[in-house]
């Protein structure tokens, strides 16, 4: 499933310009440094972090998409860095569990 398709099916609006890559797996963590060792390429990362280090780590992990939960919004410098990496940045009003249930319903395991 492409980033755009996942966004459309879960009702997300993009915060930035992104590369419409294939999503293959999910990683949920609020620990940014953990992404480097644990997240895999073509992941959707679900987190409540909004710091620039989130993009720096997600880039090394090869993530395709980041969903920031609890309605939090990243600052302009974070969005600018996400634009450089092509990672899709999205904000979701509810918590990680609510978004995780949507992903499960879409067939992610």
């Amino acid at each position: 499933m492409k980033v755009s398709e996942l966004a459309q099916k879960t009702g997300l609006a993009a915060i930035n310009e992104y590369k419409d890559r294939e999503i293959e797996r999910v990683y949920i963590s609020d620990m940014v440094s953990d992404l480097i060792a644990s997240a895999r390429t073509n992941s959707v990362v679900v987190t409540l972090q909004t710091h620039k280090s989130l993009i720096a780590a997600a880039n090394l992990a090869g993530a395709a998409m980041i969903v920031i939960v609890n309605g939090r919004k990243p600052s302009e410098d974070v969005v600018a860095l996400a634009n450089r990496t092509g990672i899709g940045l999205f904000s979701y009003d509810l918590d990680s569990w609510a978004f995780a249930k949507k992903l499960v319903n879409l067939g992610f395991e």
């Binding site: 440094s33 953990d34 620039k52 395709a64």
Partner: peptide, 27 residues
């Protein structure tokens, strides 16, 4: 495979790492 590139360099290449601009990957 996802069309991105990175280069990793040692911190000794920085003129002054303690004054350098950057984003450390820590929590």
């Amino acid at each position: 495979p996802v069309g991105r590139k990175v280069t990793i360099v040692p911190c000794k290449l920085c003129n002054s790492i303690d004054k350098c601009r950057g984003t450390s990957i820590v929590d």
